[in-house]
Design a protein around this nucleic acid. Structure first.
Lengths: 66, 66
DNA sequence: ATTTTTTGTAAGGTTTACTTTACTTTTAGT
DNA sequence: ACTAAAAGTAAAGTAAACCTTACAAAAAAT
């Protein structure tokens, strides 16, 4: 699965730390999710979508290996 | 987080076992996700959405305690 | 009513998300 | 160039997702 977190973070102009605070996770979680190192839960996906005011599918998308 | 999996399963007329097969998880996973016993990963959420041909937010929604 | 299908639930195990702390590297500001 | 902020990475621990097997309960079919 790939994601556009870095892009949406740039659009909203928030740091990983600020986003972590908004979503309620650690900064490292934001970093590793953003880098695709692990797959976040659906609760987090919904929170990202709500924060960035876009659909979950706009941020996260399936890849062939999923 | 709550979900409408049972409803969408009814609409598409598929059993938990069939859905599990489509999504690529065990039937018990479908059952426990459907009953809200645990939160699926975003990959699973995207797969549910793709299978039911609706947005993730249409199936899964945040609650106050999330 | 009996059989078959579907759903619910439980135990035990493996994998992975997510945490904290902490350090390094990169980017931005002055 | 120096400093500060942001991002990247790592290790070790905890919590939770997801698995398999198995069985009970409920619903549907005949």
């Amino acid at each position: 699965m790939k994601n556009k977190l870095k892009i949406y973070r740039a659009i909203k102009n928030v740091t990983q730390a600020q986003l972590a605070d908004e979503i309620g996770v650690s900064r490292q979680s934001i970093n590793t999710i953003e880098k695709g190192k692990f797959v976040p839960s659906t609760v987090l996906a919904l929170k990202f979508a709500r924060f960035f005011e876009v659909a979950v599918e706009e941020i996260f998308s399936l890849e062939d290996n999923d």
